[in-house]
Write a protein that binds this DNA or RNA. Structure first.
Lengths: 266, 266
DNA sequence: CTAGCGTTCATACACGTGTTTCAAGTTTAT
DNA sequence: ATAAACTTGAAACACGTGTATGAACGCTAG
């Protein structure tokens, strides 16, 4: 019997966890107040301090529940692949090993596609608490995957690899954060009848070049140099004739993002 | 004489602007309180409301002063390049046109390398005010540059282009935000005697593949499929033997990021 | 039934936030 | 010098935050 001290039938603890997860996904850590959480969970304000002790402990519980399992399965997949050199030494494959468990968890689980949004939030939330939690919980997996990438890309200096990984993961998290990804997954995966394999391959193929792209070619260098001179010309030209000390304010109206522009003309 | 209503010699307005910019770069919008600002500027708390009216108006002034000029010069450079088809139809070159003015402003100006950090902050700050400001002030340039990219990559569907641009810019902003970029620019540009052209070419060559990479190849699809089966095997295996209902918490210690890992073994 | 324990409730605390007020000081112009 | 305009100063306001306190409730075991 006596497993934990918890005996009674009270689902308010679970309701608090769900409400917290939802609000975190929707608004982020700082903007998510205990009063919002308890209101959404139909619980009393003091309930969170009774069940968890503090806001941070609540959040820690939510994140651990989701991310620990994810990272554990990522490591399992990596271990399983390291036996097969054909896969283990392919940078795109290693990248996919980071994707696939997250992708599966976001599909099969009760949370549904919300899991991806949670990943995006937790990767991009600026709160110090979230950042330190993330760094802490990624400590065991970052080392192993760094070595895997290093093994798949032996020609790349380790410092350069670290830079590019940082780069690629930022791109990934930025991608997951917005609703764009959900829209993409939802519309494409059933609208245009693409299967999971193709969608995953597409995502991976967008990311891998960040890791494998060669340094600037001579032609690129020429283009850059040409642009630099052009830029200095136009810049000095505009400075010689400063139209107004109060630089004319750019007119603006409704928000419009890159993606929406792409949607316009399909 | 009567240009504006301002006559007196009071530099507290300028001090407020500088303190605001510094604190925003360092801590972000929400974490930057008016009391912090006025303390750092050696001004009274009421000064900001007297000179600007509100915290948002203060921030708007700071951002306009920096970003309006940047975007104006970006557009100038784009216009100058559209005359030359050899450059105007190269995706890497168009990407460089976004970089170069920012790069120059961060070098020549009094603000120094802080300008890059400001860009990173403003691109990644989650505050609704910052986001709407950004969307508003990028309205005039996003359209023109989208067309430029579309012209340079005619084979890419517009929707796909929007997706990839969103992707690439997220990666860029994530890059600028951290201190990694400053460390990179500082150490590399004078440590390893690389010139600005090479550094720019390197950054551009990391970003362009996101725009130009082909869709998943058949070999990639095979790899993904193999990984998917492997993943489902390991996942079900671990689910059949659930070690503990309370999943064992991953042990963690000091923070460690990808980049730092790369620095370790040079 | 009743004592005890786990849980919920309303309320209060101490603090930090952006904003406002109005008196005092300082410069500029008549 | 006197008046007007501009600028600073200290204090307070109303609000939202995370946390703490006891009293009341509900169930279950003795």
């Amino acid at each position: 019997m006596g497993s934990t001290k918890r005996t009674g039938r009270s689902d308010t603890r679970k309701r608090l966890l769900e409400a917290t997860e939802w609000l975190f996904i929707e608004t982020g850590y700082e903007a998510m107040s205990l009063r919002h959480i308890t209101a959404r969970a139909s619980a009393n304000l003091a309930a969170v301090n009774y069940h968890f002790g503090s806001k941070e402990a609540l959040m820690q519980e939510v994140l651990s529940q989701r991310l620990d399992r994810l990272n554990r399965e990522r490591l399992q997949l990596l271990s399983a692949c390291e036996q097969e050199p054909a896969i283990g030494s392919d940078a795109a494959a290693v990248l996919a090993m980071l994707f696939i468990p997250a992708f599966r968890l976001s599909h099969g689980d009760t949370s549904g596609p919300a899991f991806m949004r949670l990943l995006g939030r937790v990767y991009s939330d600026p709160s110090p608490f979230i950042r330190s939690f993330l760094e802490a919980h990624y400590r065991p997996i970052s080392g192993r995957f760094f070595e895997a990438f290093s093994h798949a890309l032996p020609a790349l200096p380790r410092r350069e690899l670290g830079l590019r990984l940082h780069f690629a993961l930022k791109a990934l998290s930025g991608m997951l954060a917005g609703e764009d990804m959900q829209a993409l997954i939802a519309s494409i995966s059933q609208g245009e009848e693409i299967n999971d394999t193709e969608l995953l391959a597409r995502l991976v193929s967008l990311l891998t070049p960040i890791l494998t792209a060669p340094f600037g070619t001579p032609e690129q260098l020429n283009v850059i140099e040409r642009l630099l001179t052009l830029d200095s010309i136009t810049a000095t030209a505009s400075r010689e004739a400063p139209v107004s000390p109060e630089q004319e304010p750019l007119r603006y109206s409704a928000p419009l993002e890159w993606l929406k522009q792409g949607e316009l003309a399909s």
